[in-house]
Nucleic acid binder design. Structure first.
Length: 372
RNA sequence: CGGGGCGUGGCUCAGCCUGGUAGAGCACUCGGUUCGGGACCGAGGGGUCGGAGGUUCAAAUCCUCUCGCCCCGACCA
């Protein structure tokens, strides 16, 4: 196959030519996401969203297993609340979207569309926490947030993105620090186990620290172009927010104390990380745990295949599904087997099963792995 | 936000320099033959050239402004 043919076949720029272009080509060709009419905002298409749902499910299990529960806080935050924590507002003010009107009426107080939820959650926590017996508070939320970024890239940095943000309050500084590192560990294990994405964990420098945090830790993944990608962060907030949002409790020693907080999050950026960690010039390579289809079955349409091959392929599909495996039976007649091979390789399906009349006769099946 | 590049059917692009109101390949629709690595033949549908203004008898083409996208840098999940 000549280079020209290869280019035609995949329509994907080779990594060695232009890694960034390769990245955006894959997203478009594999139908993970598409650009929207809203500047900097992308549409996550069904195939891409299915990956996010699998990431959510797997991570949500881990978050709950470590004692956290889910809740949902408002999208809008009153300007005054965001401004309470000085470092926090300074860090986020340049990239918040403002709501100034309700219908035709100008608002008395402007609202920000949440860039992160420390302010609104801290405000609520101050109402809910009275005693050391109320601690720890271990809440997570799955949400969308908005940051008015000047430069955007699909999945890696978009104006609006999906994420989870955990917000906890503890009795002591040591407990908060332990929680911060525990969740960093959860992220590391999640990235390496579910996403097959090796990461390096460590503490961020002062300039990279989360606005308002005492300490910020992150997991960093290595991309195919040799660059690092911040794939998740865990912050020890100390008492910074507790002091301005008045999160106090009466301690075991009967004195009034401020809570010790953490917050931690990962976002749809993880999908970008997966693409850049595993993908090759033929397209996407998806780790089986988060692959919308783990197996694609391609029947060979020959002779009386509809009476022989197809029923067999359907039975195989059912049997695999009973085992909990996500299967795509591609029995479309408008595409040739060769076309389907290339298509599903491009979309990163881990395993392909080819089954034709010969296989039925010989009681065999052709299996091809995407990652080899 | 600084530097660079680019906006022409769904996609990739040619045409622009040397103005004369649009082409190719792929994709799509219909019919037929095919199908073990992106099949082939025939017949079709679809764009007024990112947007606005200007120059001109005439603008995809020249000028101005503007919007958007991509890459590098700075910043961020």
């Amino acid at each position: 196959m000549s280079d020209k043919d290869a280019a035609f076949v995949t329509e994907i720029t080779p990594q060695s030519d232009d890694f960034s272009r390769w990245y955006t080509d894959i997203i478009r060709r594999a139908e993970l996401a598409d650009y929207s009419p809203v500047k900097g905002s992308m549409v996550i298409r069904p195939y891409g969203y299915a990956i996010w749902e699998l990431i959510q499910q797997a991570l949500d299990r881990r978050i709950k297993k470590t004692g956290h529960v889910n809740a949902c806080f408002p999208l809008f935050i009153p300007e005054g609340l965001l401004k309470k924590e000085a470092a926090h507002v300074e860090g986020f003010a340049p990239q918040v979207a403002w709501v100034t009107h309700g219908g035709e009426e100008k608002l008395e107080e402007r609202l920000v569309v949440r860039p992160t939820s420390e302010a609104i959650i801290g405000t609520m926590y101050s109402k809910w926490i009275q005693s050391w017996r109320d601690l720890p508070v271990l809440i997570n939320q799955w949400a969308n947030v908005v940051r008015w970024e000047k430069v955007t890239r699909p999945f890696l940095r978009t104006t609006e993105f999906l994420w989870q943000e955990g917000h906890t309050v503890h009795e002591t500084e040591a407990e908060a620090q332990a929680e911060t590192l525990k969740m960093l560990g959860v992220y590391k294990d999640f990235a390496e186990t579910e996403l097959a994405m090796p990461v390096l964990e460590g503490q961020k420098t002062e300039s990279e620290r989360f606005a308002g945090a005492e300490r910020t830790y992150s997991i960093e993944a290595l991309m195919g172009d040799g660059r690092a990608l911040q794939a998740g962060t865990s912050h020890n907030l100390g008492q910074n927010f507790a002091k301005v949002f008045d999160i106090t409790f009466q301690g075991r020693d009967k004195t009034l104390q401020h809570g010790w907080q953490t917050s931690w999050g990962v976002s749809t950026r993880l999908i970008g990380g997966v693409i850049m960690t595993h993908g090759d010039d033929s397209g996407l390579i998806l780790p089986p745990r988060i692959a919308p289809y783990q197996v694609v079955i391609v029947p060979i349409p020959r002779g009386d295949w509809k009476e022989t091959v197809l029923p067999h392929a359907r039975r195989m599909t059912e049997e695999l599904e009973e085992l909990g495996i996500r299967v795509m039976l591609d029995d479309r007649e408008e595409h040739s087997p060769g076309w389907k091979y290339a298509e599903w390789e491009m979309r990163g399906v881990p395993v392909r099963l080819e089954i034709g009349p010969r296989d039925i006769k010989n009681e065999q099946v052709m299996l091809v792995r995407r990652d080899t």
